[in-house]
């Protein structure tokens, strides 16, 4: 059933966020530390195990793939509720700090990505596959 896939995804999400919050408390930070990352690892490991033991039928898989396909529309909705007015109203300090940090960190990507050897690019994407 499709709901099994959705439920597995939701359970991983919640378990990950709880782990992230716990880690935040342990570190004494008022923030979640890596919750979504833990959730992703849980989903990867648990679905891999389910698939290998033949307990993840295609229909259950659809429940996860639906949310994956909804990712870009959800991101568009996220963009539509950003505080763009405040972002543009910060004056020169906010603009230079925001732009400067963005550019400086972007420029570091090639150097950091080279750690442990360069990787080959992914094969080109089919049009409309997203």
């Amino acid at each position: 059933m499709i709901i099994y896939g959705v439920a597995a995804l939701a359970a991983c999400h919640l378990a990950g966020v709880i782990l992230g919050d716990l880690l935040g408390v342990i570190l004494g930070v008022q923030s979640n530390v890596g919750g979504v990352g833990f959730a992703m690892l849980l989903l990867i490991l648990s679905t891999d195990w389910l698939r290998r033991t033949g307990r993840l039928p295609q229909l259950s898989e659809q429940g996860i793939l639906f949310w994956s396909a909804m990712y870009i529309p959800i991101v568009v909705a996220m963009a539509a509720q950003q505080n763009v007015v405040a972002a543009l109203a910060g004056g020169p300090i906010a603009i230079i700090a925001g732009v400067g940090a963005t550019i400086a960190c972007m420029a570091l990507v090639p150097a950091v990505a080279r750690i442990g050897g360069q990787d080959a690019p992914l094969p080109p994407l089919m049009a409309q596959e997203a």
Binding site: L9, L45, I64
Partner: peptide, 27 residues
């Protein structure tokens, strides 16, 4: 409703779902 659809809850659920099928060796 845009606030609910693009809020942190559904956004994070969708982000987690994109991990499905990721190769753990890459990570």
């Amino acid at each position: 409703g845009i606030g609910l659809m693009g809020g942190a809850m559904l956004r994070d659920l969708a982000i987690v779902s994109t991990a499905y099928g990721v190769d753990i060796r890459e990570i």
